[in-house]
Design a protein around this nucleic acid. Structure first.
Lengths: 344, 344
DNA sequence: CTGTTAGCGCATTCAA
DNA sequence: TTGAATGCGCTAACAG
């Protein structure tokens, strides 16, 4: 592999008998350069096969013009929407975006955060890993005044804004809906309670039970990773219960759908015997039969808002310490899986 | 915002009365540095709040230690698996990974490729956008001897390896299966035929028809974007046909499931009246009723193989021009959606 | 095992 | 409107 030196602004400058400074300015469309020289420079750059060296520029300017994004996984349509929303805003504002996934482990989250720190992202958008407990890895950012914004899976941290939905209320409402539809023994399948999202959903569920004079029973609680397999396992656990629940509120659609299907396969009538409700309005919720009652919230919008908030922080040279919590709206989608024929 | 100078290896060197070179080496765990000095350096670095400046290093070394990945969308579980596979391999080999999505447009693909080029990725892994026709944006990489590897959605290009599955054969086999199960009027819903993946599937389908003495009829072909909505639209198109097909082979599961459900809602019996087959073995295929016959191929493995191939290219200083085409295995998953009760 | 030295390519201040 | 000069922070010869 022949390692030739890169074509630089010096090469262009030499060709054109101008100074490197002029070339630098011309390339970046600086106002104080005449149209004519600008054109000459651009043409020559193309001719020589010049490529802009982002490292040199970043090193010199001590910033990267890049926003870092860390998410637990990229594989849900919800996350993908969020990222599309983020990218829309950042690219419109002239930022690059680098994305990485923690695969739900704190270990990888820390590595990713460190890499981003060393690559001098101008700001960080993050949705936390399942088992992420520490916030140490964000300290360096905060100390250097690099804004960190949490979305969806958040942790409260001074100096950090957060973008969320009202998981408590959504869970409260969906549980209430199940109760109003005639269910009394309502079970919950949730995720790790260290995670705000699942903790809030769990608490909303409990509160609704309490407000409707139903006793919460820990036997009707399953905490798992909310994957497809977990849904199937949960179904078998339910089948073995001495008294089965008459409704299940699951903290995500994928797990809910898998659990429901497995129960159906085992002869349970949905929703007559057991009603179901999920969360996220994944496309699967409209495919599974009966269609799944769920909570809809807009990932794309969440991404946009997170990115906008970050860019606002970046632009306000002062008052960068202001912290906000933005709560986006959600809505209940009632479908057949929770429509018991039994009247209230 | 107070802009203080960064803590550098010089600061550490000064504190410790050693040379910057020693610090540089100590930090990077160079073998020729005594344990003791190494420890001193690490401690001091921590004390001063030193951060490694990746730009300076990259600038100096003229490489980034980073692999770029461009995919059409991040939102399928299949893509997410691929990326997880890629990340596994690259991170084990000490590379960073930057991911971006083209959102199925050539425009964004070009922008992303250029950004990666300017950020001096050491190699590029790419799955093409739906409407990507040009290959101009890869030329600069090839000229600079930066390996570009295509996976799944590929285009043949000198100097570029490709990782694919045998879409032709998979489609051929699945069509043959539909025929053997008693279907005669087999329809195909596919994606943009500019894309190898969809083109091959279409041709495999046609070939199987021909080999089994069935005539291919363009009226039984729908080309769309294979989204959920497209599946529903296709269902309505089918309902309006003077003679409905008795089987549909769809180029992805999501579209297939949506189409099938919509037909069911309109009173069509699946698979008795119309059999269905999809592609990808998405989780949706095991949820929809009847479960969807499909083609399984391992995204994770594809990601791993793509990344390994790339890293091989990077490591072989010579013979970097060798190009390979790797075909991964796939397998048919036969489920109820294609099990007509009608015997052959 | 450690130090000296000289850039990597660009942006920016100051001067013209 | 342009040029000269300097340094961002690190690494890799080469020389001890």
């Amino acid at each position: 592999m022949i390692e030739r030196r890169e074509v630089t602004i010096y090469d262009i400058a030499a060709q054109l008998n101008v100074s490197p400074a002029t070339v630098s300015r011309g390339l970046r469309d600086h106002p104080a350069i005449s149209k004519k020289t600008k054109k000459k420079i651009l043409d020559c750059a193309k001719k020589l096969g010049y490529r802009y060296n982002a490292f040199a520029s970043n090193l010199r300017r001590r910033k990267s013009n890049t926003i870092g994004v860390i998410v637990p996984r990229l594989n849900s349509s919800f996350m993908s929407d969020i990222i599309a929303g983020i990218e829309k805003v950042t690219s419109e504002s002239g930022y690059n975006t680098i994305i990485s996934q923690s695969l739900e482990t704190e270990r990888k989250e820390i590595i990713n955060a460190t890499t981003m720190y060393n690559n001098m992202v101008d700001g960080l958008l993050i949705s936390l890993a399942y088992d992420s407990k520490s916030t140490e890895h964000f300290k360096p950012f905060i100390e250097k005044n690099i804004p960190v914004i949490f979305f969806d899976r958040v942790r409260s941290l001074n100096q950090c804004s957060t973008i969320i939905i009202d998981n408590f209320k959504a869970a409260y409402d969906i549980t209430t809906h199940l109760i109003k539809s005639g269910s009394r023994r309502i079970m919950h399948i949730g995720g790790n309670l260290l995670c705000n999202v699942y903790n809030d959903r769990f608490n909303g569920y409990k509160k609704s039970l309490a407000d409707h004079h139903l006793t919460y029973s820990p036997e009707y609680l399953i905490i798992n990773n909310l994957g497809s397999g977990d849904g199937i396992e949960a179904a078998h656990a339910i089948l073995k219960m001495p008294v089965m629940p008459d409704a299940v509120f699951v903290a995500n659609d994928n797990c809910a759908a898998n659990c429901m299907i497995e129960l159906k396969k085992n002869g349970i009538n949905i929703p007559e015997e057991i009603s179901f409700a999920g969360f996220n309005n994944d496309s699967i919720s409209g495919i599974v039969e009966p269609n799944l009652t769920t909570v809809d919230y807009q990932g794309f919008e969440m991404g946009e808002v997170a990115a906008k908030t970050l860019i606002d922080h970046l632009n306000q040279t002062q008052d960068a310490t202001r912290t906000e919590t933005i709560v986006l709206r959600h809505k209940l989608i009632i479908r057949e899986s929770s429509m018991k024929s039994v009247p209230v």
